[in-house]
Design a protein around this nucleic acid. Structure first.
Lengths: 214, 214, 214, 214
DNA sequence: TATGAATGAGAATTCATTCAT
DNA sequence: CATGAATGAATTCTCATTCAT
């Protein structure tokens, strides 16, 4: 035997940690699907256990409750997307362009993963996902956006986007669905037609996904 | 002898039915509040029982399950509103005017009853409430609305309105919130600014609520 | 008005009593069927209420519980049969003949009313129906019956008869089923073949049913 | 390292299955007693739970309903007896001898376990226990049995045996009760006295009970 | 006396959680 | 860390009983 005690322990520890991480990922992956299908309140522990193919007790080795799992899943599903979009918008100037292209990127992600789309649409309130307030404010200040009450504007946009996510998650939509939804958002913001056309025509930057994103 | 057997039976039957109807109304009223606060999946039978001040068994005399209650409550909360709005719009012509004024009436109702607003916002998908498709189509055809995909447009509007209902139900909003939301909807539809102003200025017809509305 | 107070009261009382008696008969009739189909433990008050076509409260005007109803139904279904058979056997002598003919009369009744047969078969233990012990003892004493232990003999006969009642109640049996069963009972009792033939050939006396038998 | 992941999993699985099987046996054992005392319809889940000394939830880990438990218990209580009797009769020839000795073995079993006897007597209809039809038919064909209608004969015997089981289960009976009952069955079948005596005198073969019989 | 809505105790069932292996 | 049987509190649901009309 070429391994001494120390090595063995390290090995076991490392193996255990890897196994644990893999199990956790399985649970999160499964949880996204379960929450997407059943919403945040209906699913029971067994739904996750069955979907992840683990034992009941294993669940509790990783999460304390369904609520904790919901939070973790929200975090996991959006972890890198928002900063990713932020990065992708790095070189782009002007609130309308930034907001519109950002939205197009967001919908592209949704259309590429319908389960994700449905999940985010249903539990948005939980995860802290937010509209890019800075761009909205700047747009208002510059007069590019002609929208009245901030709150009403925020609600209109959030609602429209959420409904779109549900639509994408629930049925097949045409490829340009996300673009059209973006157009409607910009119209709602009072952006003039010419500028809207420019935003929708603008080349879509590449969304750099890091490591083990969902 | 002024009462015969037949009369007696009828009387008992009628009295019973009236009592039953009153109890059912109590349950529905309570249910609207419970669903508004807790959503469609979280509440337990006891939540309704406690809110309505009835016995557990009484619940089952009227509804088979929470789901059945949800359906009945949806129906009950919207029964007359939509036809009421339809009636109120009777003399008004033009899709933009009809759609906009209808929306203002709808939000007026919501702002007047925040529990109702929250309930409808949370449960909309269940009740068959629908946008006035006819006006939307006509507006598209006439070029008053400049919106692309029908589906995307529907989603944008529905989502915006739903989010607004949640907002109204959850916190105090300024008096003109509904009007502003309406403006955003019309902007999203591509209606030009002048016409929007006219729609928002148009006098609000009276919404005739019949008998035992919620 | 030609009726004075006294008359009216009498009239009402009489009418009420008649109505009550009719209701009670309806319940008993229905109960026999319900117990026959479901046995003594399974049926709920509502089963009787539904079968009798009465209101729930009405049940309690006549019976205190399902158990009380079972007792009453047993009594009602067998009230006159046993004494009727006794009467019909009045002129017949000899334990084998009396026992055999009595049994044939009993099965004739069962085959004429299958619901009755099933009811008696299932709840026999409740109603105090009993074998004609006197004839059995006399037969033993005289050596006509060659059966060992009294208890075993009683069990064999009771069991056979009960099973026959269930058979008759559950499916169509040939007309001579009761006769054949009687033959088996006499064989079990050790009666010799010639005498059995005589018993089965003996003319069946008429079973005088009085008034409102089931 | 002498245990790998696979081994561990297998071990846990095996241990779990064994524990589960033991619990299930406890429930079945208890259920036999409960059904014997209360019949098939009266007992509540809690009766089984209390008798087996388990938690309410544990019941549902093993059986879906009282009905399912009844079926399982019937199967469990008779699983090996009938084939055991069949085996014990292997070397015995002649329908009367086979039938009679088989019956004596059956009653010996009943008298040795009164709870079993009562259970089988009360729920016979549920479990598929059956009379040895082959012997009955052969006996008829050979003229050893002089019985009329097959159905009537079957009912007479079944009923007698069932009633005997109830008797045995409910009170102390003399040691020869089973034998006497067997005599009555054979008499009912029309077997002549001499042969009956021979059957009852025949030595009782040993009933090999395998492993975990009730 | 007949009615049937309301009641609430009790029975059935689910499900989050624990724990020995 | 993974497993899954056992647990019992929480929840759902049934049904005998009451009572105003």
């Amino acid at each position: 035997m070429s391994t001494n005690h120390q090595d063995e322990t390290n090995h076991r520890t490392r193996v255990g940690r890897e196994r644990s991480a893999r199990t956790e990922a399985r649970i999160l992956e499964a949880a996204m699907g379960v929450f997407a299908k059943m919403g945040p309140d209906a699913p029971k522990i067994d739904d996750f256990v069955a979907a992840a193919g683990i034992a009941r007790g294993t669940f509790y080795n990783h999460f304390d409750s369904v609520d904790a799992l919901l939070v973790a899943t929200s975090e996991w599903t959006t972890r890198e997307l928002l900063s990713g979009i932020e990065d992708a918008l790095a070189g782009i100037e002007g609130p309308a362009l930034r907001f519109g292209v950002g939205l197009r990127l967001f919908f592209a992600r949704a259309q590429a993963d319908r389960v994700w789309s449905l999940f985010v649409g249903r539990v948005w309130s939980v995860g802290g996902m937010e509209l890019p307030l800075r761009d909205l404010e700047e747009g208002s200040r510059l007069g590019v956006f002609r929208a009245p009450s901030h709150v009403a504007t925020r609600d209109m946009l959030m609602g429209g986007v959420r409904e779109a996510l549900l639509r994408i998650g629930n049925e097949d939509v045409p490829e340009d669905y996300g673009t059209e939804l973006t157009r409607l958002c910009l119209q709602a913001l009072g952006v003039d037609a010419r500028r809207i056309a420019a935003v929708l025509r603008h080349e879509l930057p590449i969304l750099g996904s890091k490591e083990e994103t969902p």
